[in-house]
């Protein structure tokens, strides 16, 4: 790794100005995913480009293909699923050409992910800090002591109070929101350029969800991290994303700048999602306040 040792956070510094024109770190081109067992195509063509420091959101209910799309970009499709057509490029490299060894190098160091249930991705019998330190030793070749110091820095960077204490704690001693921060710290430990957050805040209280979304926005701005945010909740995606894809039944029904998709939805399904949100959302109360 050739990276200045002085940077507090891993990753690159944020590119100056709007980065939409920068070359994408993740490029997904008409990707189709097929279940080989049944021969059925499950995802029918997804395309998007993700430049550094930008965020793309994928919205859809369970079974929409949003998680399969993420897993394909991470090279971890479940058994007998395969990318049957289209290409995925990470930092200019077509992932279909990657050997298992190259994949191991890439994961964590270039592309990383956090999922819904943080506890199931951490070892309950190992102190959480040691699990972050392990990533640093394996991925960045740090010595035991450096790795420990860096892990504490990372815990501080994800706004955990008393990072020294958290370092020495086990998963059962931490709340869901704290665990998700620990997992984000582990996911960004090796300085990836892309972070996939798949329903990463779904199980959290709304105030904690806002903290995690704020944290992701901070990381994006400070380090130029590119984000893929996957959620069933349109409003969560609206908080963070520049571009949004609305998926259902493996199909992208609508795609475009978040503002356009939310402000002038074209597909009935998008309109339904918006209507359902507005019916029991806070907007109507906030509007009452704003109109004198």
């Amino acid at each position: 790794m050739t990276r200045p040792s002085a940077d507090l956070l891993p990753g690159r510094t944020a590119p100056a100005g709007p980065s939409a024109s920068a070359s994408p770190v993740l490029s997904v081109r008409d990707v189709r995913i097929t279940d080989r067992a049944s021969g059925r195509e499950i995802v029918h063509g997804v395309s998007f480009d993700l430049p550094p420091g930008r965020t793309v959101g994928i919205v859809g209910e369970s079974g929409s293909g949003k998680t399969l799309t993420c897993r394909a970009t991470l090279g971890i499709l479940p058994p007998h699923f395969e990318v049957s057509d289209g290409t995925i490029e990470i930092d200019g490299t077509d992932i279909s050409t990657l050997t298992p060894a190259r994949w191991t190098e890439l994961r964590g160091a270039t592309i990383s992910a956090v999922f819904q249930d943080p506890a199931s991705y951490l070892n309950p019998s190992v102190r959480v800090g040691a699990q972050i330190a392990e990533v640093l030793r394996v991925k960045r070749g740090l010595k035991r002591r450096e790795a420990r110091e860096r892990a504490v820095e990372l815990l501080r960077a994800v706004h955990l109070r008393d990072p020294e204490l958290v370092y020495a704690q086990y998963t059962y001693e931490l709340s869901g929101g704290m665990l998700q921060r620990v997992l984000i710290a582990a996911a960004i430990a090796a300085g990836p350029r892309i972070l996939i957050a798949d329903e990463a805040t779904t199980a959290l209280d709304v105030t904690v969800q806002a903290e995690i979304l704020d944290l992701l926005a901070d990381l994006r701005e400070r380090t130029g991290l590119a984000l893929v945010v996957v959620s069933h909740d349109l409003a969560v995606v609206a908080q963070l994303c520049d571009e949004v894809l609305v998926m259902r039944g493996g199909e992208v029904l609508e795609q475009g700048p978040t503002r356009t998709v939310l402000g002038a939805p074209r597909h009935d399904y998008t309109k339904l999602l918006i209507a359902e949100h507005e019916q029991y959302g806070l907007e109507k109360f906030l509007d009452l306040k704003e109109t004198p």
Partner: peptide, 24 residues
Amino acid sequence: VVGSPRHAYTRLLVGSAPTLRGAR
């Protein structure tokens, strides 16, 4: 309560609920 919350926690709660407008 939603339109003009008084307690700091209620204000945080209202300010944390994701809305379709984006709230950066």
